[in-house]
Design a protein around this nucleic acid. Structure first.
Length: 476
RNA sequence: GUCCUGUUCGUCUAGUGGCCUAGGACACUGGCCUUUCACGCCGGCAACACGGGUUCGAUUCCCGUACAGGACGCCA
């Protein structure tokens, strides 16, 4: 039997980093075992579900490179099936109609809370006689409740958590169909998972308490019970569960912040899973090595600094071609006119090795894409473009101007700068290199100035130097 | 409150009774390299929640305590 698993988000907002991790683990588990990874959109909450959220989820998964093997299933399309299952349970005596009012249920819960016992339905309507029911049915709205066994226990071997056993007396008679005739979550999930032939369910630990109820439903409907793996939750810096209203941001925010999906996936897979001391995993390596049974049981705190380090790593080892679309995206966001592809390709190597995000690449490399680097970064200009260095800088520019165009190579340029440093009896290379850097880039941090001069070419480099000398003369 | 789960350096983790004076990574930090930034290299800091068992021997097994998280809806 082929292994089939699914990722089942509810489209009530963007795909956040916790959801992405669940999706990744499902994906890896399926791929690793040669199984199928399906996607189901749990859009049965008409109030909160919306198309924008569905699009955001697709976009998020797509960006991460996690493509489901089958077209997505919309839970809302299966309502008739869900209701048929409820009818079946009613017919087999595994469910019953309940006429309790919300007021009664609220009062009951309040009472139980005060008595410090677990709030649960008291089975009031289970004890109704046929004539009671007939009388009520005439004008009272009703829900369908599952008749949960009152004794015994339900147990499953969780692939991550190990054996979990829950006493049936801890459970209550959950509502399967609301008074408006719509199915509830637990019913819909069970029916859909069965219909989709899902046999491995990987989901967050917050679903553990649903599992015994769902197992009961599978059994009552005469269906095979799937295997379960409940993943520890992702927590924010404060130690509380990460959620949309609590610290979590959309995975697409990471794209906007200049992260690469390979870095995000790599970061996420190491949250709860490891393979010895290995830190770097390509997606295919993850597929090969991932074993859901090795996932740890303790919750983990999301901490961005390692993600940043990983992103720097992936940036450094990416081919320039790989980074072209990323750069174009960020340049556009930064409001910088789109450069020629060849120019971009030429310039990327000098940026990728020293930056941690694509956003930073654009910031650092801004001088490559603009006509003028003035006004200069204020502190950098104040520190390096001093009256004291003006003679040396002027001398350097003159000599560079006289340099034959064929000698406009990194090694030759460096040699010439060193000569001027010596001739002018400067304290060190930095005395001259830093002012030159500001002239070329407008800032005092940048890629190698010789690399820059070669890339910009003789004309543009000299033009920037000349306008710098003019600027310095004006302010002194 | 009840039930479920967890607890190794600040963070992510290795560790399945002796290999542990507890390993790696990030972060932080000292140094080297260097024209800047970054990379790279060398070094440092820093943890088995607590208390009982079991055992010749516990980070590893059992129990309890504390703390943390999750779940307790006609939400998903």
């Amino acid at each position: 039997m082929t292994m089939r698993t699914r990722f089942a988000p509810s489209p009530t907002g963007f795909l956040h980093i916790g959801g992405a991790r669940t999706a990744l683990f499902c994906y890896l588990h399926a791929r690793h075992s040669g199984g199928v990874w399906a996607l189901r959109i749990e859009d049965t909450d008409g109030e909160r579900s919306n198309q924008a959220a569905v699009d955001a989820i697709f976009a998020g998964l797509d960006w991460l490179g996690l493509t489901p093997d089958e077209p997505p299933v919309w839970q809302s399309a299966n309502v008739a099936r869900h209701l048929a299952a409820a009818e079946q349970l009613l017919a087999t005596g595994r469910a019953y109609r309940c006429y309790c009012s919300r007021e009664r249920l609220d009062a009951l819960r309040e009472q139980q809370r005060q008595a410090q016992i677990k709030p649960r339905y008291d089975g009031h309507c289970l004890r109704l006689t046929a004539s009671d029911t007939a009388a009520l049915a005439a004008d009272q709205p009703s829900v369908i409740r599952f008749k949960t066994p009152t004794t015994g226990e339900v147990m499953w071997q969780d692939w991550i958590q190990g054996p979990i056993r829950i006493q049936n007396e801890e459970l209550d008679d959950l509502v399967l169909v609301r008074s408006d005739g719509t199915p509830t979550y637990n019913l819909a999930v069970v029916v859909d998972d069965h219909d989709m032939e899902i046999n491995h369910i990987i989901r967050g630990e917050d679903h553990i308490s649903n599992t015994p109820r769902q197992i009961h439903l599978f059994q009552a409907l005469g269906w095979p019970v799937p295997e379960y793996a409940h993943m520890p939750l992702l927590h924010g810096p404060d130690g509380a569960k990460l959620s949309k209203r609590h610290g979590a941001v959309s995975v697409l925010q990471y794209r906007d912040d200049g992260f690469l999906p390979e870095a995000v996936n790599n970061y996420l897979v190491r949250l709860g899973w490891s393979h010895g001391d290995q830190e770097i995993f390509s997606l295919s390596e993850m597929v090969e090595l991932f074993d859901v049974r090795q996932v740890g049981r303790s919750a983990t705190i999301f901490n961005g600094s390692k993600l940043l380090w990983l992103n720097g790593h992936y940036l450094r080892q990416a081919t320039p071609q790989r980074l072209v679309p990323e750069m174009l995206y960020q340049l556009q966001r930064a409001g910088i006119p789109e450069p020629q592809r060849d120019w971009l390709l030429a310039v990327i190597p000098s940026l990728q090795q020293r930056c941690k995000t694509v956003v930073e690449m654009v910031e650092v490399g801004r001088f490559y894409f603009v006509d003028s680097v003035q006004p200069y970064h204020e502190a950098a200009a104040a520190k390096h473009l001093t009256a004291a260095i003006l003679p040396a800088l002027t001398d350097l520019v003159e000599q560079l101007t006289q340099l034959p165009p064929s000698a406009w190579q990194a090694a030759d340029l460096e040699q010439l700068v060193r000569q001027v440093v010596a001739a002018q009896a400067l304290k060190g290379m930095g005395q001259l290199a830093q002012p030159l850097r500001v002239a070329l880039t407008g800032r005092d941090t940048s890629p190698s100035i010789f690399e820059i001069m070669v890339l910009l070419g003789r004309e543009r480099s000299l033009a920037r130097m000349h306008s710098c000398l003019v600027w310095m003369t004006q302010i002194s």
